[in-house]
Nucleic acid binder design. Sequence first.
DNA 1: AAATATTACTTGTACGTACAAGTTGGAATA
DNA 2: TATTCCAACTTGTACGTACAAGTAATATTT
Lengths: 240, 240
Amino acid sequence: MGDKKLEKHKYRTIRDYIKKRIQIGKYPVGGYLPSENELCNRFGITRTTVRKALDELLKEGFIVKEQGKGSKVIERGKSLGLLTVKGISGSIDYEVETIVTEPPRIVGWDPIIPFSLTDEEKESQCVYFQRVRNINGRPVVLENNWYSLNALGLIKSDEFVDGSFFKTLSREYLIEIMGAEQELRSKPASIDVAKNLNIHEGAPILHISVRFRTSRAGLNLYGDLYCDTSEYPIRNSYFL
Amino acid sequence: MGDKKLEKHKYRTIRDYIKKRIQIGKYPVGGYLPSENELCNRFGITRTTVRKALDELLKEGFIVKEQGKGSKVIERGKSLGLLTVKGISGSIDYEVETIVTEPPRIVGWDPIIPFSLTDEEKESQCVYFQRVRNINGRPVVLENNWYSLNALGLIKSDEFVDGSFFKTLSREYLIEIMGAEQELRSKPASIDVAKNLNIHEGAPILHISVRFRTSRAGLNLYGDLYCDTSEYPIRNSYFL
DNA sequence: AAATATTACTTGTACGTACAAGTTGGAATA
DNA sequence: TATTCCAACTTGTACGTACAAGTAATATTT
């Protein structure tokens, strides 16, 4: 029962064990992990190895460490360098309401995607869905999404956890975002985009093309976002 | 001579020593650091401690490790999640020509900066300079920059290493970028911006406001960028 | 000469120990 | 009662050891 792998790379075993418990909601966000010594006893390994595992989780943004207290589980994605929408007044992040305007369905790949697909992706059909994000009831981001059907299968929109696709992947499928590539352009809004965002045709909008890489082999998420930044700018921060 | 600090946090001492050697060009980019065992002998410490120091340099993007070979010094900033300009044809990054259109001079803070200044910064005057970045001879990015005079002093544009302000900070002042916050908006070009970028007034441009945090206490770099993304999109990637 | 094996390096993982430093809550004290 | 102190936790740093695994040049064998 996987004992061979348990012998090698013990720290990975511990790391993945803890990660899974975080993903499924044991070890809830805001709570503390068992102490390092307790993990040592529980798994019969040394603190060196436990600390190596925790270091990885720290790097991946699952926990923060507090000397004298413990390792706290944090909301992942906050420290992820993702582009987020920011309210213009003050520094409060507005709560964003997400509406699925086109539920997931199986289609062919859209040539608008500016990234080169892998061979597996080209051979596969893809799942497409569209969402609009509202702030204070006004549409701000129009979002088209695609992923390879072969890599994941069709997820229905009523499965979405809190309306979030990423949270669904994490909680239900234990898939995490490993990184992303983005391209940003400033463009005049097309008629279609203008209609969706309730702005004038030709108004400047921020067009973001993004490919998210995930922890599942072969699964990339492609996004095509149109942002009305006139009131709410897009924000991005990162730290070492 | 600093022996007290050398006793505590040895790994930081080693880390900073190696970092400095990388910054000033000993330990050149592309080369390998001394082996872990050699560093152990040289500093009279254990490999555990040396590895901890190297781990930090790895996280900070100064080196990569190659099992069986050694720790290789890499060009920092590549792995930094900074927004970069990308050529549209193929995946080749174009070489960007940087022109200083307004050499550094001492002025007051510009209210256009959308970040809240620290008290020290408010009390200080600031250094301003403007640059334009050309790709294939055509202007693509207009860039205004500010930093606190008290924190750094005036750097003349002829000091710029390869025309790069960041490289100058790293090589000459041993200051590194620790992180950044950015705000992105899509806007119509003002007359002034249009003139500088040689585009129509009102054409959609990408406006980026950025604050870079540095390793020097009290020193932030504020940027106000106007990007013509019609031909060359802005690109951003990050990985865990 | 070419293929193979050895050797001497490199980093990777894991063991165990010791003490420093930060946090917290309860016991002892004022 | 209010304060101080301390003991029992937590994570942080550093010591030393051992062997696995990857790399590259050299020596050996075919």
